[in-house]
């Protein structure tokens, strides 16, 4: 059982370390650059930032 837990902790450590490594790698590759641009990507010239696109419908009905 002790060996089993040791393996478990080893595995957990390995997983954690590889997650951190992946993060460092991704930052180096520039995956997190241009984040501001990404947040603008849902807008365009016709529905630009600043345009409200939903309203209660007309009350004529």
């Amino acid at each position: 059982m002790a060996a089993f837990y040791l393996a478990l902790w080893g595995l957990a450590g390995l997983l954690g370390a590889s997650a951190i490594a992946a993060l460092v790698w991704a930052i180096r590759r520039g995956e997190f650059d241009q984040l501001r641009e990404a947040s603008q990507s849902i807008f365009d010239d016709e529905e630009p930032v600043g345009k409200v696109t939903d309203r209660f419908p007309d009350k004529r009905f």
Partner: peptide, 19 residues
Amino acid sequence: YYLIPKVIGRPVHSYHLSL
């Protein structure tokens, strides 16, 4: 995340936070 910015016409405050 899509509709709040789209309805009010303003991008998400912090993209880092959303990540």
